[in-house]
Design a protein around this nucleic acid. Structure first.
Lengths: 153, 153
DNA sequence: GGAAAGGGGACCGATCAAGTCCTATTTCCT
DNA sequence: AGGAAATAGGACTTGATCGGTCCCCTTTCC
């Protein structure tokens, strides 16, 4: 289904939120509460993004996260790449040339790379700044609630 | 990981093979043998593609499948679409506007659609004919073997 | 020195893709 | 006419992996 994982989905939501106030530090807990996302998952995602160099982390009390670069210079492709490794649409592309032992015989591999490249370029062309464009007006009331847990009656 | 399913992977390989001889009928079994793909799975995928209108099927002895249109007029996006439903990168996009109950508050939904659109356009721009370009020289020896089953010693 | 934050994993459960199998139904050939 | 060979359309199983939780450590501020 050409589906992105929720990690990437959340990651982009989180990055977008941080991009709205690039100077400010945000704690994982605060972001989770504001965006109504599960706190441990948010924490995990932020750690990965920090490790990937997209976020600056500050430990200790009064710590938190902030963007390490300007929203304009961060692409959606980078966020997804940090969270899920290099963008690879099929297995045989994932590990680069040489991994698939039958590569010289595979009729379409080169063309899969064409597809892969097209998608990557599409994602590289979208910056975080673009993602946040409508954010200004929405973020103050912005919520992205969890699925309603079945309410005990 | 922006991963495509194997169904789509195989589907494109199969369509590419059929595109190499658009006039000719190919049985599911023959395609599976030639491309070294699991026969029941190939059969299943071909059925879906036929139902989706991308393949003509002919029943009975001497039956088989052939492309219903020219390779130039079939896009990769169509193949994936037939096999996996409309291209939707995230859940909240899948069912169109209105499905996500919190949509009016979701800060980034509109921009996810931008991403989705970019990917779809990239896939629509690649035709099956392009996928087969290097096929001519390779298809006669073309094999795409299964993982080796552990050989009984 | 304690509280609050991030760092780094191990771990579990549920979902879903991948593949198999079975039973029609259609069509060709003898 | 009848059997063989092909597609049509499912139900089913299993195995990977995504999503999520939890725990312990380190760092930093007050």
């Amino acid at each position: 289904m050409i589906r992105i994982t929720k990690q990437s989905d959340y990651g982009i939501v989180l990055m977008s939120r941080l991009a709205a106030e690039p100077e400010q530090l945000h704690t994982a807990a605060a972001l989770a509460a504001e965006l109504q996302l599960p706190a441990p998952t948010v924490s995990k995602i932020l750690k990965i993004l920090a490790r990937g160099g997209l976020l600056e982390s500050h430990r200790g009390v009064k710590g938190g996260y902030s963007l390490s670069r300007t929203p304009e210079s961060i692409s959606v492709a980078e966020i997804i790449g940090a969270l899920e490794g290099p963008i690879a649409v099929t297995e045989c592309i994932e590990d680069g040339p040489g991994e698939c032992s039958q590569e010289p015989f595979c009729a379409v591999r080169g063309n899969w790379q064409r597809i892969n490249l097209a998608i990557r370029q599409a994602l590289e062309a979208i910056s975080l700044a673009e993602m946040t464009e409508p954010l200004e007006q929405l973020v103050t009331i912005g919520r992205r609630p969890l699925e309603q847990p079945a309410e005990p009656s």
